[in-house]
Design a protein around this nucleic acid. Sequence first.
DNA 1: CATATTTTCATACTAAAGTATGAGATAGTT
DNA 2: AACTATCTCATACTTTAGTATGAAAATATG
Lengths: 152, 152
Amino acid sequence: MKKYKETIIYSVGLALLMFLLKWIELRFIIFNHSFEIYVGLIALIFTSLGIWLALKLSKPKIETLVLEKEVYLTPSSDFTLNTSLITQLELSKRELEILSLMAKGHSNEEIASHICVSLSTVKTHNQNLFTKLNVKRRTQAIEKARRLNIIS
Amino acid sequence: MKKYKETIIYSVGLALLMFLLKWIELRFIIFNHSFEIYVGLIALIFTSLGIWLALKLSKPKIETLVLEKEVYLTPSSDFTLNTSLITQLELSKRELEILSLMAKGHSNEEIASHICVSLSTVKTHNQNLFTKLNVKRRTQAIEKARRLNIIS
DNA sequence: CATATTTTCATACTAAAGTATGAGATAGTT
DNA sequence: AACTATCTCATACTTTAGTATGAAAATATG
């Protein structure tokens, strides 16, 4: 619909332009005025037409302006959980899982029921975890893990 | 330098165009050919000129692209230990002191000897602390305090 | 000074955390 | 298949943490 309408408008415009040209031609022939003025007018009109066409049809030039916006992050939010260090410390999946639950403040019993194992299992994991991290208490484990970016 | 060169090129181009026009005019006058063809050529040339001008001179649309650049902050560098929240929770100096020692992974006994009070005292402080923070365990207290930026 | 708040301490108890040891089950590797 | 690492569980024990209650000093506040 829109395209159809546009086409009509452009056609009518072109027709009017033709009439204008013919009129100018007649005027200058009848009154026998300077040929150069006529050519100049033609040139002017068609230059304008060209400009208009170009602006209308050409794809807009887009210049990208890159603005850098600084986003402040708490370092923990990102850091992808220092994997190299984790492998270096040889912490297993379960141990890491338990470690992160610990850091959230859960008790051993809560952790046990959360990951569906017995309390004994959690305690065993804890022991291994503490040995690997070389700490004595869960709070120390949490502190160290946080410092080493092992947990978020 | 570049602008100067461009200007020369454009001038020369315009001059050449003039010569072309004059030549065409002469040809058609000498051979007395149709006036319409001449006008058509003028129109064509100047339309092209218009298009070229428009493309050359049109200002590019500027599109702003905002890139987010991540900047990491060391947590200690900023945050000034949310004092308003501390007063709101009515945490006393001692309680805060003990809280921060807790977060470092110390046991109650270690805390007691560190601040030169008895184990009982530390435990009492802990109780009040837990009540005020509305938590059940020291690990929860640490987690909450960290989340509320009460401790570093 | 009297009052309120904080800090201190003690005792007795319960609950949770941590240690030590042994061992079965599973899954991936050579 | 044998081996290794991981995950699992249990039991018994020790230590630490947390709860409840009461109360004596110290310190700030009107």
